[in-house]
């Protein structure tokens, strides 16, 4: 008998490059706070969802390992540097590989991870990015949603990672708050529709007003 219950791993990949400095990065911090507060009021999310944060600037690192919602502490993040999105994808793949439990004879594996990428630019590590994208697409082990924030974000790169790409108009605190509210809505929906067939596309709530789904 295993004492593990199946988890819904949620990874946030957050752009902390120089262009995020000031109001945007503060809005991201607020967003994480709001996300946590929202999810902690939802018993289904509390029993299933686990959260991890990966940040990227000139390099990438997992700042919070996959953690129980009740124990999650908001990471200290700050902005500065380039946009190593490629490296962030490599970090993500490594984390999924080591943290997400697979089904075995005696244990049911975790649910398919949910990954949210937030970026306001284009990857600066293009070579790494290209290689990472090929692997991420191959992996198929996660539902990835990418959000391009503001006018400098390049959706074409994000489209290479996943079909699900959203665009938000600005890096304003208001838009950022809406994004994180939508993320928490998506996590809640996912933790509710866990009996839906994995592999297929999960149904996420409609994006907030002012957000565009990139075709």
């Amino acid at each position: 008998m295993s004492d593990f219950s199946r988890r819904l791993p949620v990874y946030l990949l957050l752009d902390c490059s120089g262009s995020m400095m000031g109001e945007p990065i503060e809005a991201v911090k607020q967003g994480i706070k709001a996300l946590l507060s929202e999810l902690r009021g939802d018993p289904q999310a509390l029993e299933t969802a686990y959260l991890s944060v990966i940040t990227f600037d000139s390099s990438a690192r997992q700042v919070t390992p996959l953690t129980e919602l009740l124990q999650f502490k908001e990471p200290e993040i700050s902005a500065g540097g380039a946009t190593a999105l490629g490296e962030a994808l490599n970090v993500l793949m490594n984390c999924v590989e080591t943290e997400v439990r697979k089904s075995t004879e005696t244990q049911k594996g975790d649910w398919r991870p949910l990954v949210f990428i937030l970026t306001d630019g284009s990857p600066t590590d293009t070579e790494t990015f290209r290689e990472a994208v090929a692997k991420v697409r191959n992996m198929k082990a996660a539902n990835i949603i990418a959000c391009a924030a503001g006018s400098n974000a390049n959706t074409a790169y994000l489209k290479q990672i996943t079909e699900s790409v959203l665009m938000m108009n600005s890096l304003s605190a208001g838009d950022m708050a809406q994004f994180f509210a939508w993320v928490s809505g998506s996590v809640k929906t996912s933790s509710k529709s866990l009996d839906a067939k994995p592999g297929g596309n999960i149904e996420l709530p409609p994006p907030p007003q002012g957000f565009v789904v990139v075709p």
Binding site: K108, L194, A196, P198
Partner: peptide, 9 residues
Amino acid sequence: DGGDFSGET
């Protein structure tokens, strides 16, 4: 009928 992923039926 369980697939590789949890919840498949």
